[in-house]
Nucleic acid binder design. Sequence first.
DNA 1: CTGAAAGCGCTTACAG
DNA 2: CTGAAAGCGCTTACAG
Lengths: 327, 327
Amino acid sequence: MIRTIADIAKIAGVAKSTVSRYLNGGSVGEATKKKIEKAIQDTGYTPNPFAQSLKAKKTNIIGTIVPRLDSYASSQTLIGIDEQLKEWNYQMLISNTSQDLDREIESIYSLAKQKMAGIILLATVITDRHLKAISEIHIPVLLIGQEHEEIHSVIHDDYHAGLAIGKYVLEKGHRKIAFLGVTEQDIAVGVKRKTGFQKALEARDDIDVSYFETEFNIPAAQAAAMKLLDSREHSIIVCATDNIAIGVLKAAYKQGLSIPRDVSVTGFGGYDVTEAIHPGITTAKFHYKEAGKKAAINMVELIQERPVEKLTTMNFEIIKRESVDTV
Amino acid sequence: MIRTIADIAKIAGVAKSTVSRYLNGGSVGEATKKKIEKAIQDTGYTPNPFAQSLKAKKTNIIGTIVPRLDSYASSQTLIGIDEQLKEWNYQMLISNTSQDLDREIESIYSLAKQKMAGIILLATVITDRHLKAISEIHIPVLLIGQEHEEIHSVIHDDYHAGLAIGKYVLEKGHRKIAFLGVTEQDIAVGVKRKTGFQKALEARDDIDVSYFETEFNIPAAQAAAMKLLDSREHSIIVCATDNIAIGVLKAAYKQGLSIPRDVSVTGFGGYDVTEAIHPGITTAKFHYKEAGKKAAINMVELIQERPVEKLTTMNFEIIKRESVDTV
DNA sequence: CTGAAAGCGCTTACAG
DNA sequence: CTGAAAGCGCTTACAG
């Protein structure tokens, strides 16, 4: 038994427009208000969102584009966005692209067509096609995880996290270091973590550091680590993500090496699993959930056309665990 | 520059209703079709989904209610649903309840109000309030993870997984066994895994088995395991989930116990992490992504009012890893 | 095959 | 403070 605003108006004995005004917080007399309230109570009426959106030409839904659902960073970020949005009576719609850049572009257009109030993009790379799409849709877009001068962004402090990890590694006495990174196409993970790390070492001339590249997934990292560990040249392997660190742990185990006795390992991310396993992994922990919240807050401000800082840089912390030994 | 169906009609020189018919696959003459196609091409027109939904009174969106976003089972299941739905031009909308049962009920109503074509519920418990809500909304609802005689369900074979784990544990020679389970309110995890396990042991009178209960999260499991391990009475701890097994691993490590030398451990679930860590955890692996796909398939059949089996039971497999020793 | 008209359930000036 | 009317962009009988 679905009720419309006309039903409520009839039951309450007022005009539809008065009910609408009541619903939208306009000025309504006390007596009328009471009658409408009662009618709504009695019927369990709720407005049809399609009719509302059709007329108002916008929704209170924020579209979120995520490259994957099965990553700690993604899910924490989504949770943060969702929690904040709920509080402000916005809804989140998730569009999963399965790490397919074409789908990412498509999603931008299709969310816009669906009249999202705004789009939050959990970004990995920003191409010209992204910029073109974003400029064409005329709704607010916000990036998380990567920055771009033209787009509002919430990022993690990858550079300083890299710097801090570098300092910590030196402090623990390591001199023969391997850095296991990822593609430089990913500015945040591939470039900034590395350059921060390099910065920490740059004043020193007693350091022997080599840079390697692998992929984000554990098996690839494990394969890369197998070779690295073979040489036994390094006292520590600094990994660009926690998943890569886990790959290294697996490789070490396969080779009968003990961590941190035979070789130390660090990660970036602060995934739950780095604490759950043994040895616990020393890592730079990012605050994904908070980043999500901040992105949601900024997005709502953007929608309401209030000023918002172009770039928000979130904090990080170094979590020291068993995976790093003193040399 | 947003176009409406009226614009297209004018440009093509036909009536709005003809354009609408073209759009919805009705019969339109060749010449008219050409003109309309051109007009749509030229303008980049796409129909306003709100107007469509308002009139047609339904969407092609499937609402999915999930208790949490940050679990392996949830994300894999969602990915499966999403992939399948995309293929059939349906969309998935995720509603996260943060394990709040009230929100779960609310979500059922609110998704229905938003005219979802159907609702897939990643269920943990089914209360009377659930049943009431489901019966009131008059759209198809499908359960994943729990079954109910009144509702279409896709479940994992928790009972036989429990049975298989039980048999394997006996096969490995264990006689002093602890089963670390969860609340029996959760039929699938709390009851069925346990009863399957019990079934495996029932014919034997040389087994000494004790049952304990803990929560789903790692810290709680770890605390429960601390006590259990203190006694050193059991040669194996059979855990109702992989996360609980991880809690046991942590507790064992804290007590300086080695797994599987001092005590063996098994889990249920087959989360990626059980393979990523050392020792790898022996577990009953469920196929979450496939369950999601199957649920999506069944849901679409339900929407199209085609016959669908009430209950689908997915497969599982026992993955043997280092965490179990032969006694 | 095609078009005119009514209507989906709201919101929003406008008038009173 | 309140109401009548128009309109948002579609779809759907109905007629031709």
